[in-house]
Design a protein around this nucleic acid. Sequence first.
DNA 1: TTTTAAACGAGACGGTACGTCCTGTCTTGCT
DNA 2: AGCAAGACAGGACGTACCGTCTCGTTTAAAA
Lengths: 204, 204, 204, 204
Amino acid sequence: MAHSVDDTRTGHRGNRHGRSEQARQSVLHAADGLLVERGFAQLTIEGIAARAGVAKQTIYRWWSSKTDVLMDAFVEDAAEDLQPPDTGDLDQDLRVHLRRLAGFLTGSDAGAVFRALAGQAQHDADLARRLRAEHLSHQRARDRLPLRRALERGELPGDFDIDLAVDQLVGPIYYRVLVTGQPVPASFTDALVDAVLAPLAPSH
Amino acid sequence: MAHSVDDTRTGHRGNRHGRSEQARQSVLHAADGLLVERGFAQLTIEGIAARAGVAKQTIYRWWSSKTDVLMDAFVEDAAEDLQPPDTGDLDQDLRVHLRRLAGFLTGSDAGAVFRALAGQAQHDADLARRLRAEHLSHQRARDRLPLRRALERGELPGDFDIDLAVDQLVGPIYYRVLVTGQPVPASFTDALVDAVLAPLAPSH
Amino acid sequence: MAHSVDDTRTGHRGNRHGRSEQARQSVLHAADGLLVERGFAQLTIEGIAARAGVAKQTIYRWWSSKTDVLMDAFVEDAAEDLQPPDTGDLDQDLRVHLRRLAGFLTGSDAGAVFRALAGQAQHDADLARRLRAEHLSHQRARDRLPLRRALERGELPGDFDIDLAVDQLVGPIYYRVLVTGQPVPASFTDALVDAVLAPLAPSH
Amino acid sequence: MAHSVDDTRTGHRGNRHGRSEQARQSVLHAADGLLVERGFAQLTIEGIAARAGVAKQTIYRWWSSKTDVLMDAFVEDAAEDLQPPDTGDLDQDLRVHLRRLAGFLTGSDAGAVFRALAGQAQHDADLARRLRAEHLSHQRARDRLPLRRALERGELPGDFDIDLAVDQLVGPIYYRVLVTGQPVPASFTDALVDAVLAPLAPSH
DNA sequence: TTTTAAACGAGACGGTACGTCCTGTCTTGCT
DNA sequence: AGCAAGACAGGACGTACCGTCTCGTTTAAAA
């Protein structure tokens, strides 16, 4: 499904020179730009092709839909900068990570693309699958990381339910972003961390 | 904007001076049915008109888009059955309410309409506004109700942050429904209640 | 078909006040005006009703189509002023009459209505019938009049073919107006008279 | 404006780079057929597209209106078979030519198309222009031909007014066809020839 | 160096749905 | 009863994109 990077690396199977990397980049940039400038509803294959200076057929050759293009654009240029810090201080690492997550979701172009994809995934099971396989599963792993490290350091009870904790930490953030549209300030993410870690404190 | 309930008062035979209640009902039912049967992407104004036995112009006369129709259909026949119980037992009331909420979001036709609308709201600020004004705000009030009653009964600390607690309770549910696609079993919603109420218990 | 003049004259047969003469006039004037100002293609029942300040139903009650309205407007205010003169001088009478006919067809509002009706009659056999029955037959009689009088005065041979002569006199005028679009100056109509009357002159 | 004949050179299989000759032919035939079978009022772009097995957009890409299609259909398959004979006998040539013209106007499919176009041209100045430029001017040249040849042969006075004579010959025919709807028998066209040529006879 | 086959820009094609306009019918409540 | 008002089912309009299909042109590896 994802015809993203290096389908052709060492092109030598009949095709003399393989896929045009320049066309690929033009398409992804055009899609990105059009989404941010005009919104998902105004985003069309024809529009992407025109802005990218590319033939429609070139898009259809390598992507199956406009959301497929958008997924590539999203995975490519935006996904990997949400690595949580690793200072050895669980509380601090979580605070920083959640603030970054909130900032990504509410304040970045990539976040806008994510929101569009997440919205479209409600009508498109294939896109939902791809979004989970290529972004959310990795993001989830990053979200778990501080807790996993703390667990390995022995700072958390052996039966600590990391998955539940992650749902409690990031669930309210996504809820505000995707459902209520409320802002997600640091005070909010900090309060989430407090609530999850409070029961673990020595006294109360 | 919302031409929802009773624009017309006594109307019920087809065409009198003013809006036809019969046409209105046909359109809402057709939209509902088509969404559930064929999905949001396959839902078209022409399709609704054809199934409802109504002229396209009649739809355009009263609604501005297919999501406007869907909002009316949703508000009309689905919204108000998520009233939380009031047994006097906060813990129990919350458990029951969250289970119902999860059931609504994941297992009902109305929930499917909600997911479609929430998805589309990511691309459509007007729809987002309407969804919040006509459904989410009321739903939020219902979600707060058990906590508000408990607070009034003196079962919660005077400085208890109800809004934060609601975000912690329902956020993870919407997150699973809209983002990860995981199921939302009673064990999950119960665990959310436990986590929110635990710090309030005298000892543990 | 033609609900034209005086369907109701002394309204008193169950109807409290009969047909509204004011509505009828408004409709005819509106149709006339719209045709001249915006052309036949832009002329619609809705447009006539709006400009006349009349309900569509009122038009449909009394007329069967926009051409029916136009026929009434045409018959009413334009048809009867093409009476040929009767000076006793055939040559002069014909010259004057043809000049007036050309002026009517090319230079008057009523002529514009006639051209529109004649055009539409090419696609509408009913209209063609009505146009012939209510205008062309009378017009033809007027066109024949000078020749008929001359025949009665003994100025023409007893076997003179009046119908052929009329076709020769007015045919080229209609041809220029409806087909070639050329102007129809007095020199042209005079030449037609000359050609028809020349063979009758004693010598040449 | 007129995308008539051979915009494309070698095309004949459906879709090559450039216009599809097959689609063009299908559209013209469909328009022709529908006009003759159902009349001008029932002729729609959608109907033409459906019968031609062509997308509406393909029609709009190459033609500006249904009359534009009809003009192409008319110019293509109907215009050039009204060449007057050239026997050296003016009287005979004119008789034959006028009979053919009458037959064309009253009795052929192409004549039906012409009448529809001439009617529509009363409401549409662009169409009128095109009809004159692409058909009537050539037809007029053909109508003049017998007289021009006779003039060159010295059979007519040097000051003979050919244009007036043509108007006198064909005007009454078009008048009957477009205005009165009377038939145009050979006796009528012969009488027209007689009337125009009579003054030239050596005696009377 | 020449051949050669995939990828490319271009854009016409058959379609579907859009949102608008007008048709002719209807019902209402006023005059 | 006729009327102004206007909602209704229907159907065509002209437009925008869809996804498919040639065209003729690069272009870089293979011959």
